[in-house]
Nucleic acid binder design. Sequence first.
DNA 1: CTGATACGGGTCGGTTCCGTATCGAAAAGG
DNA 2: CCTTTTCGATACGGAACCGACCCGTATCAG
Lengths: 205, 205
Amino acid sequence: MGRMSDMTSAADAPRPPGRPRSVRADEAIVEAVLDLLAEGSTIEALSIEAIAARAGVGKATIYRRWSGKDALMLDALRRLKGVLPQPTGHSVREDLVLLVGAIGHNVDPRAAKIMPCLVPEVNRSPDHFRVYQNIIEPRRQLMREVLRWGVRSGELRADLDIEVVMALLTGPMLIQRMLRWNPELDDDSLPGRIVDGVLDGIRAR
Amino acid sequence: MGRMSDMTSAADAPRPPGRPRSVRADEAIVEAVLDLLAEGSTIEALSIEAIAARAGVGKATIYRRWSGKDALMLDALRRLKGVLPQPTGHSVREDLVLLVGAIGHNVDPRAAKIMPCLVPEVNRSPDHFRVYQNIIEPRRQLMREVLRWGVRSGELRADLDIEVVMALLTGPMLIQRMLRWNPELDDDSLPGRIVDGVLDGIRAR
DNA sequence: CTGATACGGGTCGGTTCCGTATCGAAAAGG
DNA sequence: CCTTTTCGATACGGAACCGACCCGTATCAG
């Protein structure tokens, strides 16, 4: 009954005839998209021809895989997810500084350059909005857990408005990284100052 | 010595010959730009031809006034500044809620739609960056004064990191308005919750 | 080997936009 | 009336891009 040659049970493997598609082409195309975006091109300014030229690929090779620019963009952006930072569990402050500092600091340095380009698209296209939410949701979940852990451990107030606190921590870092909101602020020390500000509050006591 | 006909001393008025330029055309063009942007067009997707059509104006009328799209955009965006909110001076919390709630809430409802489109430009063009900074600087100054006033009145801690506190107040509101960062959050109650969160801090005590 | 499909590259018609030029009409002053 | 300048409108050459199609070659299964 057991078939020795059954190595993968991945759905069905009907072995389509003809030359198989090049995995290198797939990667080269996606990489070209991300590179060009990171170099400053806007999404809508990106032409299929420029992508093909950069990837060293014929236009037809792109159209064989994606129906058009939109589908390609969504696919490319999905592969941009960075690695999640790993909270140490030592102290809540330390973990929050880590998470806040990681905002816009993915392993892929192109991500930081690309993010601003997405803002208009997120407002225009529900598809892009969904992609964006999928990218940030794991990070949001991570921060949510750190906050809940802090509440349980007694480091944080018990009556936290957790969703708002996440916005308090994320928003300042994001506007600074995305549009240099205040050119005077020093980006390196900012995560710590944000976390301390939110921890302590500003009301006199 | 006094000339009765000297009504304006605006530089020199050499009274140029020929048909004077239509003020209505100037306004119509700028309005068309803002309208089209507010309807979802990106800056670079905006064509002079579309602007002219929308304004009911010939293309030449635009090129007679501006050297190209960039100059027109900068000019149009400059006229977008909204009215500054007026702090009441009743309490620091009240004023901060007012200022935070006003973020992205200009008199011109188009401003809120247009802001996200500027994010990529601000990162690309120093000119746009300057225009953006000029628009927000007065608001930042207003918040700075409210905070300083709170410190003097004793409502706020004396050792405030004022620039960071401004980011704490502005960032969360901005990312929510610009890219619906957390779709669950209720935008109406958000300003109050942000201000309260920053006022009280999150550390247990 | 054959048949099928992939590849990089190129061509082609069609669309859109730019920036300039030109038109007749309109609006000013001389 | 004449000149000058602007008006809205339209036409132009040039450029960029889309998407379809095709070329000659490469790579697989049988």
